[in-house]
């Protein structure tokens, strides 16, 4: 390694390069986000409903206070919570299961893994259309199958009953997003040294025990990443709801998550000041959730960093 004293000249050069290299990306992001973000924040301090132009005024943080007492917002928050419970916990658990399943050696493993990419490649809009065709109450194939099997005797109205619609949405989101997470799980499983399993099987540990004692702890970093990514996606889910429920928020608002409510408030009700405060709140929630996962699971993060 070079001596400490001779470094500073090189360092200065390095630094110049570092800034030069980071600038274009930084500028692109700043150019497109700085103004909109500031705009959004300023907007959130306004009472601004386009349909009441005369009532426009600065209200400071009043919109945020209003959020805390707004039943519709709190209900959508609870709905988002339920949605996340299934898509984040259920989804990540499912993804890890899929990963473990496809990490074992069997014929056709490569093909099976490739097929994980199918849902990932389907754009959310197409995903929404696809599940709408499948769960349609009149012509949907889901009903045809269930009726042929004799599980139900008349068509189920999947997209008319609130709980069922939320279920379909969860199913559609999990279908689309978890295979990608499974892929990451597989990648991470492959980096677990095989010899620790060998040692374990000599110790006579069963496969269940091996999973809990070896696989899972080794997946910790990955699981954190998956939880963060899936939480972000789940809280911000929009396209699928929009397409699946024909631009509404589902029967009895069953799929109106916070992000969808922010959309309705901003675009349908034209209550843009309040809608902006909702969006900023969502942003804060996403950051808090991500931070929560990092704090909970990320302790060893520093060690793994070179």
């Amino acid at each position: 390694m070079l001596g400490r004293t001779t470094l500073s000249a090189v360092e200065r050069k390095d630094r110049r390069f570092a800034i030069f290299a980071a600038t274009p990306a930084g500028l692109t992001i700043a150019a497109l986000f700085l103004y909109p973000l500031v705009y959004a924040f300023v907007l959130s301090l306004y009472e601004l409903n386009d349909k009441r132009p005369e009532a426009t005024r600065v209200v400071g943080l009043a919109n945020y206070v209003r959020l805390l007492g707004d039943d519709a917002f709190l209900a959508s928050l609870a709905r988002t919570g339920v949605f996340c419970l299934f898509t984040v916990f259920g989804g990540v658990a499912f993804a890890v299961g899929m990963g473990v399943l496809l990490n074992q050696r069997f014929r056709g493993r490569a093909v099976a893994r490739v097929l994980l990419l199918v849902p990932w490649a389907v754009p959310p809009v197409v995903n929404g259309i696809m599940w709408k065709l499948i769960f349609d109450g009149t012509y949907g194939v889901a009903n045809s199958i269930l009726m042929t099997l004799g599980i139900v005797d008349r068509p189920v109205q999947w997209l008319a009953v609130p709980d069922l619609t939320l279920g379909v949405l969860i199913f559609a989101e999990v279908w689309k997003l978890t295979p990608f997470l499974a892929l990451m799980t597989i990648a991470s499983l492959q980096s677990i040294p095989a010899n620790i399993y060998r040692a374990a099987s000599i110790d006579g540990a069963g496969s269940w025990q091996r999973f809990w004692r070896m696989t899972l702890p080794n997946l910790r970093g990955t699981i954190m990443f998956l939880l963060i990514v899936q939480s972000m996606w789940s809280i911000k889910v929009f396209d699928s709801i929009y397409v699946l429920t024909g631009g509404s928020g589902g029967p009895a608002g069953a799929t109106t998550t916070v992000n969808f409510l922010a959309y309705l408030t901003t675009f349908s009700y034209l209550d843009r000041g309040y809608g902006a405060s909702m969006s900023i709140a969502i942003m804060v929630i996403v950051i808090l959730v991500a931070a929560f996962w990092v704090l909970l699971l990320g302790r060893r993060d520093k060690e793994t960093r070179r």
Partner: peptide, 20 residues
């Protein structure tokens, strides 16, 4: 900070982005 950008719902950026 870059991840924060990821946390912003696109909905709130629509109008200012449009104007821009």
């Amino acid at each position: 900070a870059m991840m924060t950008v990821q946390a912003i719902p696109a909905i709130v950026l629509a109008v200012p982005l449009f104007v821009l």
